[in-house]
Every structure is written in C-alpha cells, then in structure tokens.
Design a binder for these strands. Structure first.
Lengths: 232, 232
DNA sequence: ACATCGATAGTGGTCGGACCACTCCCCTGG
DNA sequence: CCAGGGGAGTGGTCCGACCACTATCGATGT
C-alpha cells in the first residue's frame, strides 16, 4: 500500500524530504543510481514535472547528480559536493554581512594555518612556496589573485580537514575575492600583503603553530578592518 | 534585442545563473517582487517548466521565496536565509566527515562563546540561565535536548555575529544532534555535560573570554573524541 | 459616505503528454 | 575476435490545460 503522504507543503517539497530521508536512512548509498524520473514520480504518486523540480533542487544542493542519457546518481556526499552552495552565500552577501563572513574566515583560516604548521609535509610546503614565488614575479592582477588563492588553498589542504577546506573555499570564491579585493588592493596594499604572506610562510617553515595562527589572523584581519571602514 | 544566451549547460542552469547575476548585480533588491514565472520564462526564451525548476532551486537555496497566489520574491538575503541549507550537510554527512564537522563546530563555538563572555547583556545572561536551570530539573531527554540547543543558541546570539550563528545552527540541527548524541549520552555523559555547561556559565558570569573559550572547546571536544572512538 | 463582502482577475502549483538529445549496450557483420 | 551500427532507455525541454490560492475592486447594505 502506498503511504498516504502527509498533506503539508507542496508535493515537490515532500518529494525532496523523502529522497533526503532515503539517503539519510541508508536505503540510498553514495554513488548509487536512483530509479528513473518517471519511476520515482510514480512511486511517490506525483507528476514527473514535480519530481524533476525536486531532483533539480537536490542537484544544486550537491546531493544528487543527473547525467544526461544515463541516470540520476547520489553524489559521494563529500564535503566538496555538499558545500559548493556555500559560495552562493559569499557572492550574494553585502554590507555588514561581508564583515561577518570575513570574521568567520579569519577564525577558521587562522586555525587551519596553525594546524598546517604542525602537519605540513615537504611536498606540500614546496607547493606553497611555488605560489608564493609566482606571486612575486608578476604584475598581472589576475595572475596574482590566482596564486593568492592557490597559496591559501595549499595551506588549508595541509591542515587535513576537508570540511573546513570546503567552507573556506566557498568564502574565497573567485567572485567574492574579486569583489572585496578590488578596492582593497588599490590602496597600495600589495606590499603589505606580500609581507604578511612571507610571515605566514616563515611560521610554516619553523613549524610554529602559534606564530602561524597569529600571522593568518592578522592577514585576514587587515582586509576585515578595511571592509569595516568601507561601511560608512 | 535578446542576448543570444551562452550555449553551455542546461537552459535551467543558465536561468539560475542569470537570476543570481541579476541579484548580485543589483537589479533585484532584497524583498523585491520578480516578474511572473510566465514572464520570466518568456524573457529568457525558455519554457515555464524549465523556469520553474530554476526558481525551485533558488528557493531551496534560500535566495527566492515563492508565495502561492501572490508572486515570487527575493528574500532578505540574511545569513539565516542563505545558510539554512547548511543543515543538509550536517544531516547527510557520515563517518570521518562527522568528526570534521564537530571540529569546525568546536573552533567556531569556542570563539563565539569567548566573544559572548565579553559582550553578553544581563537579559541575555538571564535567558542562558533559564535554559541551564530547566535542563537540570527534568529527566525527559527530548526536553533536555531542546534546552541544550537553546542554551548554546542564546550564547552564540550574544556573540553578535549572525553569520556565525547561522552556521552553528546548521551544525546543531535537531536531527544531527539527535543522531550523534543518542549513543553519547547513553554512556552516562549526563553528569559530565552538566558540569561542562555550568563551567561555561561561570566563565560568562565572570566575563572571562579565555575561560569561556576553553570551556566551550572542551565541551565540544568531548563529543568529538567520543565520535572518533566510534569509527572503529 | 462608509464598511462589508463577494466576484474576479492574476498568481504560483500540479498534471499529462509529446518530442528531443544523449548514453549505453547488444547485436551484427567483417 | 573486433569494430561499428542501431535501438532502447534516460534525462532535457517544451506545451497546454487545469487547480488552489491571493489580492483587489466594486456592488451592496447600512
């Protein structure tokens, strides 16, 4: 017998909850293929259109993945899959919210950098140094931004917490960074940024977590203070 | 002239990006009403079905809000609106990912509690104490869980960073908490939890940020350690 | 003149069916 | 045995109809 589904909310919202429940309940494993849209719609007693809306919603959330001509699959449910939407938050936030986001980033990134100082391997450190060097040998703002992002990404990766890395990735999304830093770096902050980066690097080489934490916090804090001053 | 839209990806994905761009670009303000689904579909040259999928996706992300019979509106784009999806991450993560989530929570919550110790008002402190007392005068696990959540929520609110509060709210979603703590509290951790809570409370009363940070970190850390030991 | 309330136009919500674009696999022919 | 072709099955898109709900405006009664 078909469960006489709860009558609350739209049928699409119900479908979303049911699919989430199937995954949370373990009847759908990561990577597994789902029934076809048509079958799923029939099972839940709704139209294919409504079911498609539910699937699309779970797709943008990073829970499902639709492959044209093949089928619908559960993602690996890794941190990266599910936290991709975090970038949307960064891109659409404004005003005081931006300061709050930078505060969160300061807290997480300083901790991650401290962890990295204790755990980073030679190979990982070499990658960090590569981006640091590349950043100092070019004047193209685009390229500098790329290496800046990669510099921090490499450090955070060395901290070993994928979830934290995924969140920070969202907080440093390209459009977010470009939006905030455009004005910031026009105020001759290039030199200061370089000093701060090499200070972080020195702490990593010295394997000094506390120095690394302070250096990273100060680095993000500079941008944070500038952003605060812009709100007038 | 209609912009000959880029030919990449599905039409729905394109529509999602275009609407996001309209909001990010400022041509759509928070709270503003959008054109009707039919008009939007016509503007972008796609069918109403595809447009509905795009709208549904943005609705789930907390960017748009659809009111039956009235219209589609941009949300206030507050932290709470956009970070509601963070709960999904917590609910669907498993294994090592759960430990990582608790690690993130430990970092953020300890900092938030430290901030609260410096900023909390008398009224806010009274609310914290209310939940603390209620937690000690009942044996109903459901009720204890409720007041536990409210206890931490009140503290985090006193820290004054809505974005951080919204993230922690997701990391403490009811289903997540219930899932993790079911086993944890069956091991006689009630007493320890009480001591940890009152230790946090004392630090707040003393307005001692460092003591508050340590107490909160230890509190979450206990659960974190237990979770780690469960992965064998 | 004013308040009440019902008809109505307009909105999102749901449905069913049709067709297209793409994938995958099996079967055929060399 | 292998390469190629074709067909069945899948998600992607579109259309048109109808339902459920909301908001507004105007007729009605006071």
């Amino acid at each position: 017998m078909e469960q006489t589904a709860p009558r609350k909310g739209t049928v699409t919202a119900r479908a979303i909850e049911q699919i989430k429940a199937m995954i949370g309940g373990g009847s759908l494993e990561p990577g597994q293929r789902l029934p076809t849209e048509r079958d799923l719609a029939a099972q839940l007693g709704i139209s294919r259109s409504s079911m498609r809306e539910a699937i699309r919603a779970l797709t943008v959330l990073g829970v499902l993945e639709a492959r044209h001509g093949s089928g619908i699959y559960v993602t690996q449910l890794e941190a990266g899959d599910l936290l991709e939407t975090f970038g949307v938050v960064a891109d659409l936030s404004r005003g005081p919210r931006l300061v709050e986001l930078l505060e969160v980033r300061r807290i997480l990134e300083s901790t991650a950098t401290a962890l990295a100082a204790a755990r980073i391997t030679r190979a990982q450190l070499a990658e960090v140094e590569e981006h640091l060097a590349a950043m100092e040998t070019t004047d193209d703002p685009e390229e500098i931004l790329s290496h800046d992002l990669a510099f921090h990404r490499a450090i955070v990766a060395a901290a070993g917490n994928e979830t934290m890395a995924a969140i920070l990735e969202g907080l440093s999304s390209r459009t977010f960074r470009a939006r905030v830093w455009r004005g910031y770096q026009e105020e001759g902050a290039f030199e200061r940024t370089r000093r701060e980066h090499s200070r972080i690097h020195r702490a990593l080489v010295a394997r000094d977590p506390e120095a690394a934490r302070v250096a990273a916090a100060a680095h993000v804090g500079e941008v944070e203070d500038w952003m605060r001053s812009q709100l007038d």
